[in-house]
Design a protein around this nucleic acid. Structure first.
Lengths: 345, 345
DNA sequence: TGATCCTGCTGATTCGATTCAGCATATGAC
DNA sequence: GTCATATGCTGAATCGAATCAGCAGGATCA
């Protein structure tokens, strides 16, 4: 392998016996518009292949003020694997448009956030996806006003920035619907209560649940408050059951809570779904690991990421408003099937 | 907010009443070397602040052929949250050196991989981290020869590229050591066998386990083969226990297997750690969700990511060789404490 | 008084691709 | 035979920062 000086467009042009201008037009798909002959085009393309020419994006970016690059700024990339599914979806959507993702993780530190935004702006990213791990209301840093931005999993009431979020309200309805369809009419409880005041998910899910049950003339018998963790849910539900509670249907506000609930039910000799039907939220892998697999209303993280990027690249970007993506239900075996009924007619 | 034309270095220079050259020297920390007066420096910095000047990285990159950007190419970003922890570690290490991460996910497709590598090279990334989800032997695409590269979680026997991996062998020893320290001397089994022939982790872990037990004159009573999944482990161990097996200590080759094992043990009325001690690998969140929390030998994903980036930026990069990071043990309550002994002296 | 050195700066060029304006030559219309 | 149009291409400027070579003007020295 020789110390090959990097091949430039001029090298290609020289080799093909044309000007750099012509070569540039050809490589940018403007040969028809510029009436380049087929013969010339062939020669240029051959030269590209022979020399192994690769355009220098820095040069192009300098001239065109675009980088085919999207900045993703989020509070946490790692936590859960939720954020990374977002990344996967975003990455795929970006690649569909020949863009790459530049990521920055703020770890929730506003100072770091400001710094990263500056770095992204300096790097001339074409747009920014501002994502939060937990669905929340935020106030985006003013620096983002300098680039087109889409919010992911959050909204900023003080701006008109487009935002992409899961339809938590609809998700709540879906979860309740699963119990309704199973014929459960009483002994319905919700486990978990929103632990952080800024997070909207819990509030909306609960609202959706109430709305759906209300349509059937039903209601929640109570909410068992607990942090959104396995251990926290276990402790709360264990104590609750020890107090004599005998629920028929439990809606857990996320899958980790469901796992704690499973543990507590087992501890008290209660079987899912024979004694208690369980529905959950998140649709994470964990839901499929439980025995029996828990029916879970899925957060469509990959879709959210992909949609955010699509909105970002859409010409009508500015007027998109808030997009809410449906939360599909992932059926497990944790809801007791409806008892056989007398056929209707 | 006005339609502010972007501020360039010349604008700053003009405002400060100096040449762009001078301003450039000052902003690049060469004012002493270039004997710029303190007064001039002050004026330039003031101008920067007043105008809100931000350098244009594209221009700088074009000139310097560096981008303060590191490319991360991996087969899967999403799967598990392992890869994303790597990203977090890598991101933090990169930021410590004022670099950002550009990510590309190949989804295991060699075509996509080749494409992404070209994209990264075009974008003039300063270096590339080539990561795999599963520890494996790989053959890196030749295009990577054009940029400094570090392998993460994999090795390429055909090259001398630096590689960063977990010390699986040591991890195996640690896992076995936990059982040894508890005084277990028989009825020791390993659950899970490497499902993919290219993955090294299982082989090395098993090797480490055997070595450590051998030192005590002990051995494995058997391996229960199963896929590395919750359901697969449950099925295998359930059948095995139904056959009358009564192990004393189980080493699960990852946390998902441990979860399946817990389920199977519970099914057969066996309690952890009273009846069976369990040790696992991964140190994922799942390990802490099980009851009792399972003792797990941790894959230091964040460290791996950070170390890979550090190696990449190290001047001695080329001669680094293979770096193996220790796998610390995360103690749960799944190993039966050693029975009280007669004091030794 | 001239030679030398230091101080504090600047002009001009460069990186590599994009793009506007325009220039020969060929073809056709009348 | 002339003018107009179409064809197929090119020269030169440009994007914004980095950097080499060099230039005034003052101080120092012999």
């Amino acid at each position: 392998m020789s110390v090959t000086r990097t091949v430039t467009l001029s090298d290609v042009a020289e080799r093909a016996g044309v000007s750099a201008t012509t070569a540039s037009y050809i490589l940018n798909g403007r040969s028809v518009e510029m009436r380049i002959s087929a013969d010339t085009e062939t020669r240029v393309r051959a030269a590209v292949a022979e020399l192994g020419y690769r355009p220098n994006r820095s040069a192009r970016s300098l001239r065109t003020a675009t980088t085919s690059t999207i900045g993703v700024i989020s509070d946490f990339v790692a936590s859960g694997h939720f954020a990374s599914q977002m990344l996967t979806g975003a990455s795929a959507a970006a690649r569909a448009d020949a863009h790459l993702l530049v990521i920055g993780e703020t770890e929730g530190d506003p100072g770091v956030e400001a710094l990263l935004i500056e770095e992204l702006l300096e790097r001339q990213v074409d747009g920014i996806v501002y994502a939060t791990l937990v669905t929340a209301e935020v106030t985006v840093p003013p620096a983002l006003g300098r680039r087109r931005t889409v919010l992911l999993n959050c909204v900023d009431p003080s701006t008109v920035l487009p935002a992409v979020l899961p339809d938590e309200l609809g998700g709540g309805r879906t979860a309740a619907g699963a119990l309704v369809r199973a014929g459960l009419r009483s002994g319905l409880h919700v486990v978990g209560e929103d632990p952080t005041p800024n997070a909207l998910a819990g509030v909306l899910r609960l609202q959706g649940i109430r709305a759906r049950l209300g349509e059937e003339g039903l209601g929640i018998d109570g909410v068992v408050p607990c942090p959104w963790t396995v251990a926290g849910a276990y402790a709360a539900v264990d104590a609750w059951l020890a107090d004599g509670a005998r629920p028929q249907g439990l809606i857990c506000l996320n899958d980790r809570i469901a796992m704690g609930v499973y543990q507590a039910l087992a501890e008290h000799g209660l079987e899912v779904p024979r004694d208690v039907s369980v529905v959950s939220f998140d649709g994470s892998e964990l839901a499929t690991w439980l025995r029996p697999e828990v029916t879970s209303v899925t957060l469509p993280y990959a879709d959210l990421g992909a949609e955010a990027v699509r909105v970002l690249m859409d010409p009508g970007w500015a007027t998109t408003g808030v997009v809410r993506l449906p939360m599909p239900i992932s059926a497990g075996a944790s809801v007791r099937p409806r008892p056989a009924e007398v056929p209707a007619s």
